[in-house]
Design a protein around this nucleic acid. Structure first.
Lengths: 383, 383
DNA sequence: ATCTATAACTTCTGCTACGAAACTAACTCC
DNA sequence: GGAGTTAGTTTCGTAGCAGAAGTTATAGAT
């Protein structure tokens, strides 16, 4: 495993802010950067020069909308100047991606976790890291995400799916691979991916609701993630949404877990049908009009609509992003979801700008890579 | 009416940030300020000198916790160096306060609004402004708050209680009095008062729920108010809280208005008793054990508990502040409120830090004064 | 009492990074 | 081809910063 030499490390604060603005908001001309950062044109010449010299930025052509005057030369980060790895751990698999500085996925791999002992998981991850890392010249950082929480981005405080408590995962992985490593909650990682490189890019306030094995929630306000000790524990995992809904394993009636999660939907429909069905079967049945499945998926859609309305009413987001491997519920139960969303929303309030993401399982891993990218470019890594 | 000459206007950005930090966080020594603002000790000597000279700051004594070394001299703003007025308009009254730069109330007045025509209301307000303004040397700015919304802090876009649409209130008042005027939604004003000078001072994230003629909601995240076009229209005014609750005038069952507001509680109890009762009577009856009143107030308490839990779950605040002239509901219905709050909250989540404010009606007006103070010290006023 | 350690605060100096202004460059429109 | 317009460069003066050295004021040890 080749560890890349740092490139963004010697940057002064203003130089870093120029590089970040470009990373963040795509190709920009010097003149535009000067306006955005409230700097003079002269300062921008000065600041961009060394960034071009060391290869962080490059000139990528001319502004297409050719108005009058000298054409603007666009600057962009060189996405392939740095490479990052992201790994998402579930209870039984590790999903890994190799990405550029812009979080574009170059390659992906997955491996089963036969045993959950930290040392064994680290060994499996090292294998993935080796395989993906050998494809490029050097890796700048590794991000790991999982269902659970980490207070310092190094230690896994709690990971229920792996039965881990206080595992120094980052240290173990750094020892095994030599890479700088950051650990983060998976929903936060997906939220940051949307924030920096996804549907949340142009919004200074948005919410992410993930539907999958559980229900997760991430919030960005004033262009910054709302970080709270409670953020990692899934505060809305058992949110009351329908007092007539089915019982969840923790004893709530109609909570978000029982109404929306993959296990919740599967268990409701399996009970109704008297046999075990997969999640996709559930939604296929509902889509083709099977009465019980239709009813359960519509109830789920309504519960999701209410959840979205609650989030929209209380956090006033510019956008609400639905993501996660169970997001198909929002498609099949769309009409019911939208109906309830409108019912629970003040008619004078602005329309909820809803974005249902097509979700590939490696998106979770890409989120982990984004955490690595963020820590790298913000200068938080000191390997 | 004497208009005070500007004092904070010629300040450079770093000097302003020093003055703001002191206004914000009470008396501070130069050394402490240097640490907080990431400046050198030398810079702080330089920056504080002119602020002391022009009378914005003054030395107010020695740090009480005397450790070893030279004692620190505390700097504080001179609260009486500037005076501000705040006026809250309801549908039938104007409440006005005179405050210092620290938003301490010096005097208050109120006047009935016999007619709602903007010109007449402005005349009534001018009378209050004259009475209060003559008590001190000069007024720096006037803030006006009301139930309704203003997009530019000058024009009242909509004020249902006054039947106003697009009234250029600030301009009219400036013409009448010569003062710089800012207009703001009343709940936002109260939230900013808590943010700068109240229970929210030390928290970078908190929520305010006001209970009164309606139910209002303000949110501060990352030490900044969450401002949205939707913020002024009372998004949670008709929030679904209890599907078995009474009907509100807009046709919702058990929404926050019907369950929590003063008119909602009064109407429920009046119907149950077959006679018209005041709000205080309602709560007295409940407190002394009248069965119907007790039941209705407990239902209100439970609805409030659910609302607090929803806010806490979705915005993860460090503190939730209850305020407003109907806040007594939280006292009389306290047990029911807390019970439901815990039910709707994940057991692993941190305890909700709840603050029930003693609410005097002039608090609404003080909020308006705080909006004036903010605009003044942030340099947004150019009279 | 006197000395030492510590910390707040002041004064001075040199440097950095900024904006302003004058300039060059590249293009459009007439 | 000139006028107008905008992008980007170069140069220069300077505001405001940190850092160092010095001063002041205290507690605690000797």
């Amino acid at each position: 495993m080749h560890v890349a030499s740092p490139l963004w490390n010697g940057l002064t604060e203003p130089a870093r802010s120029v590089a970040l603005e470009v990373l963040y908001h795509g190709p920009l001309s010097r003149a535009e950067l000067a306006r955005r950062l409230s700097l003079s044109a002269g300062s921008l010449t000065r600041l961009s020069k060394p960034l071009l010299d060391i290869g962080v930025l490059s000139e990528v052509g001319i502004q297409p909308e050719n108005r009058i005057g000298r054409p603007a030369v666009l600057l962009d980060v060189v996405p392939t100047s740095r490479f990052f790895l992201g790994i998402k751990l579930t209870g039984d698999e590790a999903h890994a991606v190799l990405t550029t500085l812009r979080a574009e996925v170059i390659a992906s791999e997955r491996a089963p976790l036969d045993r959950r002992e930290p040392a064994e998981v680290v060994a499996t991850m090292s294998g993935l890291i080796g395989k993906l890392g050998d494809r490029v010249d050097g890796i700048s950082a590794l991000g790991v995400s999982l269902g659970g929480s980490s207070t310092d981005n190094l230690t896994v405080a709690r990971a229920p799916y792996l039965d881990w408590t206080d595992v120094p995962l980052a240290t173990m992985l750094t020892e095994a691979t030599g890479l700088p490593v950051v650990v983060e909650n998976d929903v936060i990682a997906v939220t940051e991916a949307e924030h920096w490189f996804g549907a949340g890019r142009q919004y200074e306030r948005f919410a992410v609701i993930t539907v999958g094995m559980g229900v997760g929630y991430g919030l960005v306000v004033h262009d910054k993630l709302v970080a709270s000790p409670d953020a990692g524990i899934g505060l809305i995992g058992h949110f009351p949404l329908d007092s007539a809904g089915p019982l969840c394993p923790m004893g709530h009636h109609g909570c978000s877990y029982s109404m929306l999660s993959i296990p919740g939907i599967r268990s409701s429909i399996s009970v109704a049908l008297g046999r075990d069905v997969t999640y996709d079967e559930c939604l296929d049945l509902a889509a083709t009009g099977h009465p019980a499945a239709r009813r359960i998926v519509d109830d789920g859609g309504r519960a999701l609509g209410r959840l979205i309305a609650l989030v929209a009413n209380l956090t006033m987001p510019n956008k609400v992003i639905l993501a996660g491997d169970g997001v198909r519920l929002a498609h099949v139960g769309y009409d019911a979801m939208i109906e309830r969303l409108h019912e629970d929303r003040d008619p004078r309030a602005s329309r909820v700008n809803l974005d249902i993401q097509a979700f590939d399982f490696f998106e979770w891993a890409r989120g982990a890579a984004v955490i690595a990218i963020q820590n790298y470019v913000l200068g938080n890594l000191h390997p």
